[in-house]
Design a protein around this nucleic acid. Sequence first.
DNA 1: CTCGGGATGCGT
DNA 2: CGCATCCCGAGG
Length: 182
Amino acid sequence: MNKLPREFYDRPAEQVARDILGKYLVRRVDGGQRVGRIVEVEAYLGPHDKAAHSAKGLTPRTRVMFGPPGYAYVYMIYGLHYCMNVATEAAGKASAVLLRALEPVSGIEGRTQGPALLTRAMAITRELNGYDLLGEALFVAAGPEPTFRIVRRPRVGVDYAGAWARRLLRFYIRGNPWVSRP
DNA sequence: CTCGGGATGCGT
DNA sequence: CGCATCCCGAGG
């Protein structure tokens, strides 16, 4: 698998979000390998983005967002679920891309249509918070040349963020049946 | 220390 | 639409 280099993540979150569509998320656990094609993501731009966790500033929770690019930001939501992001841009920018849905490729059982279902199917939990995506247990690999079209929509579940909730920072592959909602 | 709420998913 | 269930961040 052709692992994406650090430089891929060292760009504005919006750009990484678009480019990561169609790439493969690879998880190696329990002696096996699970692979899914990334079909839906959201960009969180930094502390000025009221919908981003980093808008709260540098805290224990958000430290990975504030760190260097190419690391997994995994957090627990509603006391039950985990969500996974990739940190983007230089340390201090505190931007990230949330992975929202995968199209199963191999080794995956269970649903991957939604950020919390995705992490469950890929066995991604708190232990992988801060994990370097250039490692072997969790990384993103290149896919074939994209032929799909990208749809832009407002992000899901951030109504509290005022004008930022209306920004078109959710991206997904047009017509892909694994997108969490059309 | 307490307290409120959350980048969700599922069942009713 | 309500609920599960826990960590974090704010405030006293």
